[in-house]
Amino acid sequence: MEKIKIEDLTVRFGKFVAVSNLNMKVRSGEILGLLGPNGAGKTTTIKAILGFVPYEGKVEINAEKIGWMPQNAPLYLNLTVEENLRFFAEAYGVKNARQKIEELLKLVELEKFRNRLVRNLSGGMKQRCAFACAMVHEPDLLILDEPTAGVDPKLRKSFWEYFESLNKEGKTILITTHYMDEAEKCQRIVLMRGGEILAEGSPEDIKRKALGGEIVKVKVARAEDAFKKLKSVGLNAELKGNELSVLVDNAKIRVPELFEILGNDILELEIERETLENAFLRLLGG
């Protein structure tokens, strides 16, 4: 089942089209990464999902409660950490608010700072507080807009530990980020540019798509022979010295085939790890 189903979504600001004919689904129980360069339309898409911008098209939401953490972690600066949590808990009409707040303060490790005004928090603490506020009414769908922007690596790691443990509990997460290591952790990625979807799929799918497959590097004993053998079975190979670069559609299937064809001539074999970053740059550049 889909938590969010978006059909032909178009958002215009005057003459500027921020999102154009977007079709996208967020499946129940997945972590979906919405990625793309600044101005790609990620935040606008989120605002449309939440109903804060007028749009054309259809947005269907099958979540009972949505937890939203907007960009830049807006909070009431003149309220303390605990008061912010209590405000949102009471506004949402949360039962056992006190208990829930304690739980969250513990989760985001802000127990010691509960009485500090948000105004006086560090960036990372503010980010954690905003996350806790988004969680206070136990949402089944979390929409997180750059939750880790400007957060140090250690804290980013613990953020992702929260996300992954929440996901294990069955919560659906829609997240935007500019960090590639985070994108790798998403089960699915939607890559946007200029208000449109450029690519969609698992991180591996995206890499494959960017490259048109995967590259397997093989060092062989008799390079010329090997090269000819590969060409004769119609594989896309290049020869450099005694190293062959073979572009295959799916390494998992093709590597055993390579062993069959080249047999004992193989000295070394390596599936080239394309980084997601390179894949993105390739896709965005093209």
């Binding site: 939440l50 907007p70 009431y76 949102f88 949402y92």
Partner: peptide, 9 residues
């Protein structure tokens, strides 16, 4: 940015 957030609740 707190207005939209509280209008959610």
């Amino acid at each position: 940015g707190t207005l939209e957030l509280s209008l959610k609740a």
